[in-house]
Design a protein around this nucleic acid. Structure first.
Lengths: 104, 104
DNA sequence: TGTACATATAAGCAACTACTTATATAATAG
DNA sequence: CTATTATATAAGTAGTTGCTTATATGTACA
């Protein structure tokens, strides 16, 4: 593997928000509105994080009607490494912000 | 493992220069002057990188006379993960800058 | 002791990052 | 169609990063 590629991969995973998003997706696909409730950041911030993960091939997105479901890409070359990393993390401690409700 | 701790760890490894430094140390301990020849950056830059890796517990330093030898810390909790990562990288392609010679 | 060499520290800076708010696009329900 | 909901994009910004040059500290040897 190219050193620049590994650098980009590590940088992509070297962010608290993205790690939490991936930890949440470990259990199965979720849409942006679900993920926004989990993190204490705005919807655009979550969207931007997911697109960065997608660009790196770490996650996949699939539209189902009004929602777009995001999931971990099991065919990424470093998929098993990612699972090992996520296993290091504790089960999500949800810090929702009060004003955010579930998507309807 | 704490999410902030993993974030810091990934950020520390998410840098091309530090990855190259660690790849070089895979073969055994080296001093700053050796490492400076390997990278195309200044001696202070290498020193700063090594101290960041040390702060994270990834490397160890040991003075031997005038030189300080740096090595990968085999007792770091994520040591085997680090080895897996370094195995992904090709053998160092040395891009010395001409004006830099070996330390005497 | 003084000079040379190895390394560390300090200060400054351009580029990048992760957020924000505002707005645009896309899909469905009525 | 229009309104609502889900998501994306744009633009701006404070904080961080990785380098630089200049200088200080540490060690050894003549």
């Amino acid at each position: 593997m190219d050193i620049e590629t590994l650098e980009r991969y590590m940088k992509t995973l070297g962010d608290k928000s993205r790690l939490r998003l991936l930890k949440a997706l470990e259990e199965g696909p979720l849409c942006i509105c679900d993920l926004t409730v989990l993190l204490d950041v705005s919807q655009p911030a979550v969207s931007q994080h997911m697109h960065r993960l997608k660009k790196e091939g770490i996650v996949l997105d699939e539209r189902r009607g009004r929602w777009i479901y995001w999931s971990i890409n099991a065919h990424h070359p470093q998929y098993s490494l990612l699972l090992d990393l996520l296993k290091l993390l504790p089960r999500q401690t949800t810090t929702c912000r009060e004003e955010n409700n579930r998507c309807k």
